[in-house]
Amino acid sequence: MVRDVTAASFPIVLEGLTVRYGRATACENVSLSVVAGAVYALLGRNGAGKSSLVRCLLGQQKPLAGRALLFGQDSWRHRARLMARVGVVPEEPDAPASMTAQQISSFCRGLYPSWDEQGVANCLARFAVPTDVPFGRLSKGQKAEVMLAAALGHAPELLVLDDPTLGLDAVARRAFSDELIGELADRGTTVLVATHDLAAIEGIATRVGILKDGRLLLDEEMEILKSRFRWIRYGNEITSARTAYGTELDAFDAVRVRVRGWGVDAVVSNYDEIAFERFRQTNGVVDAEATAMSLEEIFLAVAGEAPAPEDGLSAPARGGAA
């Protein structure tokens, strides 16, 4: 009973997931859980391990260690049964090239008892995708739209999207996002989306995970994440040499600090209004200001490469990310 409640509450649970390809590590001991109804944005640079994690989650690949649970069941062992409750939009649209959208819908109709053929047709009509053209001859955007329509056709409890808008133009990306938002508004489906399209996901995601070199650097509610990250700029009269900074940012857990000619420019991960007021009144801190950060800026600060010393920037500050 406890397990059922947990399964219903957390459609996705990863426990110490590790994936390796020979000597290369794709995921290292990744653990996370996604609560029902959440939109989980899984971020990471190319090669960070997002797709490997998604394949493990979908039971398409067996992890070297750990396990992926969907609705409380091991996705490797119970893949076929679990897929009846999951909609998938892959990174590379993988439907057979000769199949038309109509045929894909017909194919799926035989597999899902709750298949809504009319709903799929309506969705494709909204996308203006021709239903009688072979999949191989559709544009990249149309392919992604067909895959999304096919993923939503059986009203899945969980939608897994692996970089679905990769390579799409702005119009196609917007259409895709709108459909996804509509789906979320209508049914409250749990979503896990691995993406590079941070701007699009920022308005949808409720929780964010950032992978870097196979490790989960961050796994947090979007609201909290955005509230604790700030961009702080100030003139530095504390140190005698203006090319350095001291300990004044320690309270904010600076993720990255740049010392410029006019002062200091820092990204902090533990922002607090009261502490910032105190910071502003610190002797030697001049014209301090804190700016809210977009998801993309946070991602760049967390997952981006450390700047090289010859760029005229300082090394990353003491403290660091969460």
């Binding site: 076929a80 679990l82 897929m83 993988d94 057979p96």
Partner: peptide
């Protein structure tokens, strides 16, 4: 061509 995932994303058994 990495197209087999189309079938693995559906409720179809491995042997099937």
């Amino acid at each position: 061509e990495r197209r087999l995932a189309f079938y693995f994303s559906r409720p179809i058994g491995n042997a099937a």
